[in-house]
Nucleic acid binder design. Structure first.
Lengths: 327, 327
DNA sequence: TGTTTTTATGCACGCGCGTGCATAACTCAA
DNA sequence: TTGAGTTATGCACGCGCGTGCATAAAAACA
């Protein structure tokens, strides 16, 4: 294993001092002549500055940590992918740390900090208030993506508004027995979407039916919807926590020979790619992911420029996408 | 922004030299007494060794780079997730570098090398022979996941065998007009699956029908299958390059009012989670991902222990999963 | 108690690089 | 030719840590 080419090697080759090489690859002053010689030598030797060593003196490592949980959720998938691309575009590197059975958020954060990352982004998963407190106290900027915990900056889709919009839409289309289908967990976004829907229903004087499931998304939606459809007075609209639940519910409706949307309307949340497939044609609420990510990257760029990290959450308005399952 | 706690701070606090602290967190010899004092001081100050600085002298950064392309393919998704978990379990960190329009594999590799990663894993995407040559020449171990390019170590599903197994299965179940549905690209795995199928058909004296599409997976399968079904003598079995193609083909069959599997059998490859949903119940070939990942991690562990990187590809035998669309 | 062996600790150097400071080289005007 | 002003270069130090080496302390033995 041949050892790596260092700035010293280039300096020797070009007959200059190592500092000259350093300045040449940084933003220092170098004469045209030496610059040429250095670049030629670097090219020959295949030199590339060592990002690790470089970050030891300068304060920036160019690393952004992504703490990601709930990786079985396709929406988190998409967010992760888009974040990866955005980070690469911003000429930074992503250190992805998954939540494992053995490692919770706190532990993951510690690992991220070991690498002196420029910023930490928490994606998906459940973050307790206690952890938020710890994160706040860090000198490394921490942002949340997709939730709205107090005291921690970030971006999120406006879940409450989304719930409201979905509810109002279902009411306008004449539904009167509207059920909210979700999982047991007290996720922030779950509670907010439900609250938005509840507000719309209350304003219209309609009851809020509800069914929860502890199963995973697709099966959860399937099972919860099955229980709802088996009731004597079954709902005429299902507002699902996310698209996977909605797809499961759609499957359940088909098993009950219910016509969608005539007998029952089904509305999802997230607009995952599958939602637009003609096999499903799921009506849903689309969080404007690109806008969210753009804002997040702007926040990250800010702190990299030395600004203090934002402490507020930027809410992005979702968009109602009307397809076949609710119209 | 308060500066980070260093080993020197801990040393001062504990009244020992910095080297003692270093040894305490490494594997050096420290007496019980000083160890206690150091650990207490570290605890109080919240000290954690700086992984960046640590890697500067020791040769290992604990980083593994994942160069990932084709991120719209759900199978790549799953691989990525499982790899992330495996890397975390192995107490290493994943540096994920996506292939962007602006950055090809070579460029991504350079970025990875800038961070002195312990190993590079190439996942998905098309890697040209030229690039393989460059990767070979690196002193950083490079492994490929899911393909079988010569001269580069790694793991992969035995695509040829998979094609053969699928073909033999369809033949045994009485199919005579078997079509291979895939994308235009000359991906390694694509060619091998096709060759395996071709071998099975040739041995049985059957023709190999074929349809390719340049569209993305789901639409590609839908469009290709549509063209096949529109022919006078339509095939009675479709062997699709992957499950997404197969789902598209399934959708096309439904549009043509064809019964599956009576009129046409559909076989996929990958066994993505959706394949097992009762809405689809797709028969498919399941690459043994966990086995592949286990072997890959073993290879990585080897090189981290100083062994020279393997140059061969470990092939894992896929498993035929028979569900409703082909039996 | 003195001597040898073992163990614990500190010192100093280096990993690869950025950067302040002093010096050298160069430019331009007088 | 000389002086002031400007620019380019090298030297040396430090970032936080691991580690070889020398030394001090402790332990073991005679």
């Amino acid at each position: 294993m041949k050892s790596r080419v260092t700035a010293q090697h280039v300096a020797d080759r070009a007959g200059v001092s190592r500092s000259a090489v350093s300045r040449c690859f940084g933003d220092g002053q170098v004469s045209d002549d030496t610059r040429k010689r250095i670049e030629a030598a670097a090219e020959e030797l295949g030199y590339r500055p060592n990002a690790i060593a470089r970050s030891l003196t300068g304060r920036s490592t160019g690393l952004v940590a992504l703490l990601v949980a709930e990786m079985d959720n396709p929406h988190v998938d998409i967010v992760l992918k888009k974040l990866l691309l955005a980070i690469a575009e911003a000429d930074k590197r992503a250190l992805v740390i998954p939540e494992t059975p053995r490692q919770d958020v706190t532990e993951s954060t510690m690992h991220a900090l070991d690498y002196q990352v420029d910023a930490i982004v928490v994606v998906g998963g459940t973050v307790s208030d206690r952890v938020v407190g710890q994160l706040r106290a860090l000198d490394t900027p921490v942002f949340q993506f997709g939730r709205q915990l107090d005291g921690l900056g970030g971006v999120a889709c406006d879940s409450h508004l989304g719930g409201l919009m979905g509810g109002q839409f279902l009411i306008r289309s004449g539904r009167t027995r509207i059920a909210y289908v979700s999982k047991e967990s007290r996720t922030d976004s779950n509670l907010r979407r439900r609250a938005g829907l509840a507000a719309a229903l209350e304003a219209a004087g309609l009851p809020l039916l509800e069914e929860r499931s502890e199963d995973n998304s697709f099966e959860g939606g399937y099972n919860a919807a099955t229980r709802l459809f088996a009731q004597l007075e079954r709902p005429d609209a299902l507002f699902c926590f996310n698209d996977m639940f909605a797809l499961g519910a759609l499957q359940a409706a088909s098993a009950f020979r219910l016509r969608v949307p005539e007998d029952v309307a089904i509305l999802g949340f997230d607009d995952i790619p599958m939602a637009s497939w003609s096999a499903f044609s799921l009506s849903t609420l689309r969080p404007n992911l690109d806008a969210q990510i753009a804002r997040l990257m702007a926040m990250i760029a800010e702190v990299c420029d030395g600004a203090p990290p934002r402490r507020t959450v930027d809410l992005v308005v979702p968009e109602l996408v009307i397809r076949r399952t609710a119209c």
